[in-house]
Amino acid sequence: MFDGLSLYGRYVAASIRSQMQYRASFIMLTLGHLVATGTEFLALWALFERFGHIAGWTLPEVALFYGLASVSFAISEGVARGFDMFAPMVKRGDFDRILLRPRSTILQIGASEVQLMRIGRFGQGLIVLLWSASALNVTWTLARILLLLWTLCCGAALFSGLFVLQATSAFWTTESLEVWNTLTYGGVETAKFPLSLYEDWFRKFFTYIIPLAAVTYFPALAILDKTDPLGTSRLFQSAIPLGGMVFLGVALLLWQVGVRHYHSTGS
């Protein structure tokens, strides 16, 4: 376990050094990310400036959803981005090389494309989250802080799970399918707003199938100490983020099935 982590650290360091070979491009991309995501939040701010609140939600409240979704997505992009880039890897036959090395495929792929420029999204999400935390009328007890951190971890697990599932499908299709981008990139956009705003079927989909609400909406309610218009209990809201971990677990099991399929077809 420790050995695996240290290898992971080495991969990350190598990946960062590789990117530093193209320093100018790195700086431009990071700034670009920060500006792009920053403008997005500005638009949200302008909306609330005009209307005050939307369906009973204030800007600092929505900023909490926004921050949770952005930060956990940025973490998952950091640790599982290799899975996002997996389809071309299979196509090039580079997965063979992974199998030829005496380490777990998950570790090798997860660590293979750590992108430092994602720090732009992470930074912006964190700023929004911290602003929201100070602007909200909430006392930050230890329990609340722990729930927040726990939610971020589970959120990162959920998004990583989506990347893993996307990669797993590439064992069969070899092409990367656009539908996965609607779930990952579309998912993070969806999760930036309170679930109660959406249609019922849409809510169900993002609660039970892809449990995005489990790592944003429900725990955020517990943090905000707000009654759920959908009527869930506090206990449920604090425990449900675990769904993100379960989702990742299932995704990793399916990944193993995919690897076995690859072993028998070689493509």
Binding site: L7, A14, R17, Q19, Q21, P102
Partner: peptide, 14 residues
């Protein structure tokens, strides 16, 4: 994108 020796170091760890 890495110098050869750094690839060797990574393989050592792997």
């Amino acid at each position: 994108d890495l110098p050869v020796i750094e690839s060797f170091e990574l393989l050592r760890a792997i």
